[in-house]
């Protein structure tokens, strides 16, 4: 039966086995739980659903999550571009160590990151004391949430931009310089223009990740309802209250947002790559 799907014959064995087991796995592990949520939500009625997601506490949590994630993504776009640039363009002692450390946020469990950042930015913490001297309260505010989110999603931009920077040939930059462009103008018009698709992809992935971040955030956030409560936490709180309906309704919103972002980023990336090669 699986032979019907094949568009080109191959002499290699194992299509039926690998195809059916992969599809079975994807259905059981990924699609069944997702449709479970969809069924659960669709059974609850539009009015209940609408009441849950327009509840002031829910709205406040959407706002703080989206704004902090946006702030974190902007930070990551700038810091990520800087790190990728320095790692690919310059040779200096400690470069390899720097490159290896950039992936730390992906390897470090989010709960460890959360616990540590909370201590680091506490009012008497190593970094928090300087912020409180400057009159900026980090822990228990959205600033802390933003910092935690930018930590856990830092590698996305670096890893997206790095290969593009490595492939850039110096010809265009040299041409721009010969034509009298200042270094800043040549960076903006030549390099940034070529890096932009990768930068957008990386920032988009960082934003998606930040929207769903939980372990990294809850330690530093203080979790005050209406102020520093992120959506993922509110979902968990509703669950602990056995309010499955509210938890599922809220979850469906983040799920929808992350799926739209994921497919949007993949589609955009494919289009940009195609346009680039089409030139």
């Amino acid at each position: 039966m699986t032979a019907l799907l094949r568009t080109r014959h191959s002499v290699l064995p194992g299509f039926t086995l690998s195809f059916s087991l992969s599809v079975l796995f994807i259905c059981l592990v990924i699609l069944l739980p997702l449709s479970g949520l969809a069924v659960h939500v669709s059974g609850m009625g539009w009015d209940t659903y609408w009441n849950v997601i327009t509840d002031p506490r829910s709205i406040a949590s959407f706002k703080v999550t989206v704004l902090s994630a946006a702030g974190a993504s902007v930070i990551n776009a700038i810091v990520g571009l800087l790190l990728a640039w320095v790692i690919t363009r310059y040779r200096f002692p400690g470069r390899r160590l720097m490159e290896a450390l950039v992936d730390l946020p992906f390897a470090l469990p989010t709960a460890v990151a959360g616990l540590t950042l909370a201590a680091l930015f506490a009012d008497n913490g190593w970094l928090g004391q300087w912020f409180s001297l400057a009159g900026i309260q980090v822990s228990y505010t959205w600033v802390g949430i933003m910092i935690a989110m930018s930590f856990t999603s830092l590698p996305f931009v670096v890893r997206a931009v790095q290969p593009v920077l490595e492939d850039l040939t110096p010809d265009l930059e040299e041409a721009a310089a010969t034509l009298g462009a200042s270094p800043l103008a040549s960076f903006r018009k030549v390099i940034l223009a070529q890096v932009m698709p990768a930068l957008l992809t990386g920032t988009g992935l960082a934003f998606t990740r930040s929207l769903g971040e939980y372990g990294g955030v809850i330690f530093i956030a203080g979790n005050l309802p209406y102020e520093t409560e992120i959506v993922s936490l509110l979902v968990n709180i509703r669950l602990e209250e056995y309010d499955f309906a509210a938890a599922s309704a809220l979850a469906s919103i983040i799920l929808l947002a992350s799926l739209v972002l994921l497919f949007g980023i993949q589609g955009l990336q494919a289009r940009l790559v195609k346009r680039w090669h089409g030139l």
Partner: peptide, 28 residues
């Protein structure tokens, strides 16, 4: 190793866990 209909769909579907909030995954 094979070309078949739905190949792209399979590679797209396995990215879903990366994009999802872990709390939502647990809830599902």
């Amino acid at each position: 190793r094979f070309e078949f209909r739905g190949r792209k769909l399979l590679t797209t579907l396995i990215d879903i866990p990366f994009a999802m909030s872990p709390v939502v995954a647990g809830l599902c």
